Simulated assay, not measured.
Amino acid sequence: MKVAPLSDIKLHVRFKLSALWASLMFCYIYGDYFGLYVPGQLQGMLAGAGPVGPVSQGSLSGTALLLAVPGLMAFLSLVVSPRLCRWLNIALGLFYTAVMLVTMPGAWWFYITLGMIEVVLSLLIVAYAWRWPRGGPISD
Results as ranks from 00 to 15, higher is better:
Trp87Phe: 05
Trp109Lys: 05
Ile9Asn: 09
Arg131Asp: 08
Leu20Val: 04
Gly135Met: 06
Met73His: 07
Met73Asp: 02
Asp8Leu: 15
Ala68Arg: 02
Phe95Lys: 07
Ser59Val: 01
Ser61Met: 03
Leu24Met: 12
Met45Thr: 09
Ala98Met: 09
Ser122Tyr: 05
Ile125Glu: 04
Val52Thr: 15
Trp87Ala: 00
Pro133Thr: 08
Ala98Tyr: 14
Val126Leu: 11
Ala64Met: 04
Phe26Thr: 13
Pro82Ala: 14
Tyr30Lys: 13
Phe26Asn: 09
Ser139Trp: 07
Gly115Tyr: 10
Leu94Trp: 06
Tyr96Trp: 04
Ser56Ala: 00
Gly50Ala: 02
Lys16Asp: 10
Val120Gln: 03
Ala129Leu: 02
Ile9Val: 10
Ser139Gly: 10
Pro105Ser: 01
Tyr96Pro: 00
Gly31Phe: 15
Leu60Lys: 10
Trp109Leu: 01
Tyr96Ala: 01
Tyr37Met: 12
Phe34Tyr: 13
Cys27Thr: 11
Leu36Arg: 09
Val55Glu: 08
Trp132Thr: 04
Trp21Leu: 04
Leu36Ile: 07
Pro137Gln: 05
Val52Ile: 14
Ala68Thr: 14
Val55Gly: 09
Tyr33Gly: 03
Thr63Arg: 10
Cys27Gln: 11
Gly135Cys: 01
Pro105Gly: 02
Phe34Trp: 11
Thr63Asn: 12
Val99Gln: 07
Ala98Ile: 14
Val13His: 04
Asp140Arg: 00
Ile9Tyr: 14
Val99Tyr: 00
Leu124Asp: 06
Tyr128Pro: 02
Trp130Pro: 02
Trp132Gly: 00
Cys27Met: 14
Ile125Phe: 05
Arg14Ala: 07
Ser81Trp: 05
Leu36Cys: 02
Arg134Val: 10
Val102Glu: 15
Leu121Val: 08
Thr63Pro: 10
Gly93Cys: 06
Lys2Cys: 00
Gly50Gln: 05
Met73Asn: 03
Trp132Met: 01
Pro54Glu: 13
Cys85Thr: 07
Ala129Gln: 05
Gln43Cys: 07
Arg131Met: 11
Met73Leu: 10
Ile9Gly: 15
Val99Ser: 00
Trp132Asn: 05
Val120Leu: 07
Val102His: 12
Leu124Tyr: 04
Gly31Val: 02
Gly50Arg: 01
Pro70Ser: 03
Leu76Cys: 04
Thr113Ala: 12
Val69Gly: 08
Leu72Gly: 13
Ser81Thr: 14
Leu67Gly: 11
Trp87Asn: 04
Trp87Met: 01
Arg83Tyr: 07
Leu46His: 15
Lys10Gly: 06
Lys16Cys: 07
Lys2Val: 06
Leu24Trp: 10
Asp140Met: 02
Ser18Pro: 11
Trp108Asn: 13
Phe110Cys: 06
Val69Lys: 07
Gln57Gly: 14
Asp32Ile: 00
Thr113Phe: 15
Leu17Glu: 09
Val126Ala: 04
Cys27Asn: 14
Leu124Pro: 10
Gln41Leu: 06
Leu84Ile: 07
His12Ser: 06
